[in-house]
Structure formats: structure tokens, C-alpha cells
């Protein structure tokens, strides 16, 4: 029995050792980067959010009221919930690697501090790209493009295999709360690291 007890502790100890290197140590390395709250995030509202209020005034007013900090936080949170519920993250990653020309395709290589905020609980880095990466998506496409795209992706991008999300729209084909929120989320992703237009035009 004595051997078995030792073996038990060794087994748990090895698990602890592995977990330390793979999970605890990265956390210790990164925990001093200040954590941004939702309020802090909402201090930098991307212009696309105000444009959204102008593009769909009736719908925006109905679901969110005025485009301000409070409505931005709500739209962002709802957008992320939709993104998770529809498993968008299973086909779209959210980090740019420093290899394979990704910097030229998507933009700035991802860095740890941009993920240290309340929107990254849980993180959505993703492990598969059926569609393109989204961490530099802000401003790449217009709000209208997104609205048309979510409704019927192949119509906007011929050959796309992305599903239709018809439940983001009401009976008249106007966006509902889900539609407005998910576009807000798309236009927020990477808004903190936007690049000049000449670079975007290369994509």
C-alpha cells in the first residue's frame, strides 16, 4: 500500500507539474498586464457603432436607445453571446500569427495585452479557420456589408460556405437585436489596433 500511496501522489504531482508549465506559468507571466473592464473598453467606441445607429435608426432606437457607453456595452455583450451560441469561433479564429504571411493578410500580429479585458472571459482565440481570422475585422467591411452578409453569405461572397443567419433579422428583413449586436461585435474586434487605409486595401 505504501507504494500505491506514493504512486498516487506522484501521479497528481506530475499533473500539477504539467499544469504549472502549461497553464499557471503563462498566467503568472501575463497577470501584471492591467485587466480592462467593460467600462474601460467602452471609452473607445469605434465609429462604426455610431454609424450603425444612423444606418438603422428605428431598430437601433427600439433595441438600444441612444448610441452611448451603456448601449455599446450591452450590444457588445449580446454580440459576444451570439458569437458563442452560433459557434462562430469554431470556424473563425481570433489571433494573427507571426508566420505564413499573416501579417500581410490580416494586419498587426496579435500581442497579449489586447486580450486582457472583460470581453475575453472566456477567450475566443479559436483553432480552425474555415473562414478568415476576425481579430482585425473592425472597419474592414461596412455595417451594410455585414448585414447583407449575415443574411446570405454566398450572395455577398460567391463561394462562401458560411450558413445563413436569418434569425438576426425581423419579418421585414431589418436587423433585430441579435443582428445589431453581432455587427457591433464584429466592428469592435481589432478597433484598438486599426491600421491606415493603404494597408487595408491590400487585403
Amino acid at each position: 500500500m505504501k507504494f500505491a500511496t506514493i504512486a498516487l501522489f506522484v501521479g497528481i504531482g506530475l499533473f500539477a507539474f504539467g499544469t504549472f508549465w502549461q497553464a499557471v506559468a503563462p498566467w503568472l507571466s501575463l497577470k501584471n498586464i492591467p485587466m480592462e473592464s467593460m467600462e474601460k473598453i467602452a471609452e473607445k467606441i469605434p465609429p462604426e457603432f455610431y454609424m450603425l445607429a444612423g444606418d438603422y435608426p428605428d431598430e437601433f432606437k427600439k433595441y438600444f436607445g441612444k448610441p452611448d457607453k451603456t448601449s455599446f456595452i450591452e450590444a457588445l455583450k449580446t454580440g459576444k453571446e451570439v458569437y458563442i451560441a452560433e459557434a462562430c469561433w469554431h470556424c473563425h479564429s481570433q489571433f494573427v500569427r507571426p508566420v505564413a504571411n499573416e501579417e500581410m493578410r490580416y494586419g498587426k500580429v496579435s500581442y497579449p495585452s489586447e486580450y486582457q479585458n472583460a470581453m475575453q472571459l472566456p477567450q475566443l482565440l479559436g483553432t480552425r479557420r474555415v473562414g478568415p481570422d476576425l481579430i482585425r475585422e473592425s472597419g474592414v467591411h461596412s455595417n451594410d456589408w455585414h448585414m447583407a452578409h449575415f443574411k446570405n453569405p454566398p450572395e455577398v461572397t460567391p463561394g462562401s460556405v458560411m450558413p445563413k443567419y436569418t434569425w438576426f433579422y425581423d419579418k421585414n428583413g431589418r436587423p433585430n437585436k441579435k443582428g445589431l449586436s453581432v455587427v457591433t461585435y464584429m466592428q469592435w474586434l481589432g478597433s484598438w489596433a486599426k491600421e491606415p487605409m493603404y494597408k487595408l486595401s491590400m487585403k
Partner: peptide, 17 residues
């Protein structure tokens, strides 16, 4: 842990684990 306590990159390390 990644759902409630550790955000972002460190959370990804834990998720991977």
C-alpha cells in the same frame, strides 16, 4: 477557470491544457 477567472491569452493556455 477560463470562463470566470483567467481572461485572454492565459485563459487560452488553460483551455488548451
Amino acid at each position: 477557470i477560463p470562463q470566470f477567472f483567467v481572461p485572454g491569452v492565459a485563459g487560452a493556455a488553460i483551455t488548451g491544457t
